[in-house]
């Protein structure tokens, strides 16, 4: 079943057509990767899907619902979570608290309940904390729970960001360059993790630069170049695709 359907998506910034007539679908419980050289429009595409930027035309349909015009928080409420290329954790909050914020869409307590600290609120807090600890455990970073997020190592911050996104129990997870800034060992670790997330029943759409990561774990790959989709296929086929090879190797800058 297709969980995300993107049709003829367009976005331009002034004269620059960042995303041009891009369309593809993402099957449930799969890992789909979007690759392409720098400036191909990958991150812009992500920002359009997650509602961070409005698109000019086209459509994004998630679980049968058109997302046009929805705010990022409304898209999150519908079961889509994301991470950022340049990690956006909440500074001044512990790793645990960061992950607890991720439970926002799965909890209810508002201003009045918060101020009065009703028994039900206390139970919900315990549930949020328990779930957050569980996710830190899944990512093998429970020992970092009480450390301020900003003071963690880069790789650890990425793990916290993963845990925060997973805390929402999303149907779909958007990962923006999850291997950016990581060394080879850490990248392999992230690859293992992404497969694990898929096995939890979460559909993954990722944007990535690192070819080894993408080829290893993706079920399908979309290739973007200058805002346009130039290929969509299985990893093995993409590796043989003449046009893709040219973009990646023929430019003479690699």
């Amino acid at each position: 079943m297709t969980i995300l359907e993107i049709n003829n998506l367009n976005k331009s910034f002034g004269g620059l057509q960042a995303v041009q007539d891009v369309g593809f679908g993402v099957e449930e419980h799969r890992i789909k990767a979007v690759i392409g050289p720098n400036g191909a429009g990958k991150t812009t595409l992500f920002n359009l899907i997650s509602g961070t930027l409005p698109f000019d035309s086209g459509s994004v349909v998630f679980k049968g619902e058109e997302l046009r015009g929805l705010k990022p928080y409304q898209i999150a409420e519908r079961g889509m979570a994301r991470t950022y290329q340049n990690i956006k954790l909440f500074p001044g909050m512990s790793a645990l608290e960061n992950v607890m914020v991720g439970r926002h869409t799965r909890s209810r307590a508002g201003f009045v309940a918060g101020m009065l600290n009703l028994p039900a609120t206390g139970r919900e807090e315990a549930e949020i904390r328990g779930k957050a600890m569980e996710l830190l455990g899944l990512l093998e970073i429970e020992h970092l729970a009480d450390i301020e997020a900003g003071s963690l190592a880069f790789g650890q911050q990425r793990a916290v960001e993963f845990a925060r996104a997973l805390a929402a129990e999303p149907a779909m997870l958007l990962l923006d360059e999850p291997a950016a800034g990581l060394n080879m060992n850490e990248t392999a670790e992230v690859a293992r993790l992404i497969s694990k997330i898929r096995d939890l029943g979460i559909t993954v759409l990722l944007v990535e630069h690192d070819m080894s990561l993408v080829m290893d774990i993706s079920d399908e790959i979309v290739v973007l170049s200058f805002g346009q989709k130039i290929a969509e296929d299985l990893p093995a086929a993409i590796q043989q695709n003449q046009e893709v090879i040219e973009i990646y190797l023929g430019g003479g800058d690699d």
């Binding site: 990022p72 928080y73 999150a76 409420e77 956006k88 909440f90 500074p91 929402a168």
Partner: peptide, 13 residues
């Protein structure tokens, strides 16, 4: 306060 964009993406209005 810390990261408004990320807060919004986590479902906070």
């Amino acid at each position: 306060h810390g990261a408004e964009e990320a807060a919004n993406a986590m479902g906070i209005d």
